[in-house]
Design a protein around this nucleic acid. Structure first.
Lengths: 156, 156
DNA sequence: GTAGGGCTTCCCATCATGGGAAGGTCAAGC
DNA sequence: GCTTGACCTTCCCATGATGGGAAGCCCTAC
């Protein structure tokens, strides 16, 4: 199997397969005399594993850990489970951040007439300055709850 | 106000302020004779606007659009509203993807005993190959519904 | 006059992914 | 046997938003 065929068979692009090899996530593939990479069923299986793990949002270093456990016949399922639970928690945190943003956005959009007039509570909110140019520094929309700095790295 | 003071006043790091200036998101700041950037209340106001928009997850090009509308006294609030609604929809899509991943992860974790034994449905699922090494290609967990390719770009 | 802290620019790194160029290889068709 | 087109190789660059750090200038306080 060439890299292109392996890519088609696994859903991992040829570019990514080379990258994963380069960073050591997957072992270096065999080569033909001409230097072409060669993939067998086992390699395809591994690549599919990686692909599925990526589909669950695992970062590459976590996938490396999963692969190591996969290959370790004497693993403890607790270790695998921990990775999965951690990942779920990580995603839930991201979801919470995003939901908080959505809540704010939808609240703002709701209060904007959305017509030809220029008045817009959305811009007013974005421009709100704790007593610098015009507005009072109090609650602009009550408990909209725009998270005061939801975290610099929103989507890692 | 120097760039450091503006950074402290707006929550945008000095690095980011320079970056926003470089890409044209905010106008170039004035300079002292020695070349130091100088910021006034108006600049601070703009930076705060940018910061708040970032907090709502807007990409930089969308923030540019918001800033343009903000400065345009004859804007239609409908245009602003559209940006906000689009943004909310974008975030919702991301949330849906993440939630689908979380569902799968938690379902898998639930079915893993998580003890010292090596058997692990999580690894079995990741390793599942449509009839290649061991398992039958049928539904492994019934309707877990791992999304068949939730999209290559999970979190833009 | 000097020390320390802040400013400048420039380069590099992240993370996972894609685009593209330059050149070698293979298989099919003539 | 030769051409053609599809595929492979490596190498470099770009993304988006952010941080880190170096080398060098500037300002203020002592």
């Amino acid at each position: 199997m060439t890299i292109g065929e392996a890519a088609a068979a696994t859903g991992v692009s040829a570019k990514m397969i080379r990258y994963y090899e380069e960073i050591g996530l997957v072992p270096a593939a065999g080569r033909t005399a001409a230097g072409y990479r060669v993939y067998g069923p086992h390699d395809v299986h591994t690549l599919r594993f990686v692909r599925r793990a990526r589909d669950l949002g695992f970062a590459v270093d976590r996938i490396a850990a999963l692969l190591a456990l996969w290959r370790d016949r004497s693993r403890a399922s607790a270790d695998v489970r921990r990775l999965a639970v951690d990942q779920a928690a990580l995603l839930r945190r991201r979801i919470d951040e995003l939901q908080s943003m959505v809540r704010t956005l939808e609240h703002l959009a709701e209060h904007c007439h959305g017509d030809a007039r220029p008045d817009c509570p959305i811009l007013d909110d974005l421009a709100a300055t704790a007593g610098e140019c015009h507005a009072a520094p109090d609650a602009r929309f009550g408990s909209t709850g725009r998270p005061h700095r939801p975290s610099p790295k929103e989507m890692p």
